[in-house]
């Protein structure tokens, strides 16, 4: 719905109201919009966005989350795997002792104490009030210290000129980037693209929500079922948690 109902011009508003009335009368759901924080509201520290991934449901041969992310943010590869950006990737993990194999997606863990934010000289790496860790590409100088510092290998450096970026997902040469938790979707009350793809094309292994909201599906689930953080020894308090790994 970008463009409709939010453009601040009287004539347009009139049109938008009219069509909203018509669509509502027709039975079209506008629940998603109703759930969104309103555009003028800032992200709030009362919210902590998080993700729960059940590796038992996650199949080794499925990469729905990865393709969902790639098409959402237009992360088209250049055919150079060593320098191509990956915001989310599938890991196949084999236990050295038991041979047990599991599969899971790895992405920015949106830590409460993110090392990338600590090391960034200009403050371009930052954590939003609602716990989302982002790169402000306007102040990123491309020093790549955050890439060195991230324990999850979640960051990529843009190695070439880019074209065809999405309007909601600016990306450019010489800066570092990583998963944004689809902040543009979250701010409109939607779930991240990977979670959506996992539900529609994958095995429904990902749950997204507000960890601080005791009634949310994710909060209820992590309270009642065991889950863990990757490299919990670092005490980073990640926003992404895993089950059955």
């Amino acid at each position: 719905m970008t463009g409709s109902g939010t453009v601040s011009r009287r004539s347009l508003l009139k049109g938008a109201t009219a069509c909203a009335a018509i669509t509502a009368a027709g039975g079209f759901r506008i629940v998603e919009l109703a759930m969104a924080k309103s555009p003028e509201d800032a992200a709030s520290s009362l919210v902590r966005w998080g993700m729960l991934i059940d590796t038992e449901k996650c199949a080794s041969d499925c990469d729905a989350c990865v393709s969902g992310c790639n098409s959402e943010h237009n992360l088209e590869g250049m055919g150079r795997p060593e320098t191509d950006a990956q915001w989310i990737r599938k890991l196949d993990i084999t236990d050295n002792q038991t041979g047990h194999v599991s599969s899971l997606p790895m992405l920015c863990q949106h830590c409460e104490n993110p090392p990338c934010v600590d090391v960034c000289p200009t403050g371009a790496s930052f954590k939003r009030e609602d716990g989302i860790v982002l790169v402000d590409k306007h102040t990123c100088i491309g020093c790549r210290y955050c890439v060195i510092a991230c324990p999850y290998k979640a960051r990529s450096f843009v190695h070439e000129n880019l074209h065809n970026q999405k309007s909601y997902s600016p990306r450019g040469k010489g800066t570092v980037e990583s998963c944004t938790f689809c902040v543009h979707r979250i701010d409109n009350g939607r779930t991240p693209a990977c979670v959506e793809s996992c539900q529609s094309d994958g095995n429904g292994a990902m749950v997204f929500g507000d960890l601080n909201d005791k009634a949310s599906e994710i909060a209820v689930k992590i309270k009642s079922e065991p889950s863990r953080q990757v490299r919990e020894d670092l005490e980073l308090n990640t926003g992404v948690r895993y089950q059955n790994v």
Partner: peptide
């Protein structure tokens, strides 16, 4: 060797004092 060497002025005007890099500047 920076990704955006033309933004040296950003490095000189924006500081994150928890970063050892910023201290080094």
């Amino acid at each position: 060797d920076l990704g955006r060497p033309e933004r040296l002025v950003v490095a000189m005007t924006h500081y994150n004092f928890k970063s050892i890099f910023a201290w080094n500047i």
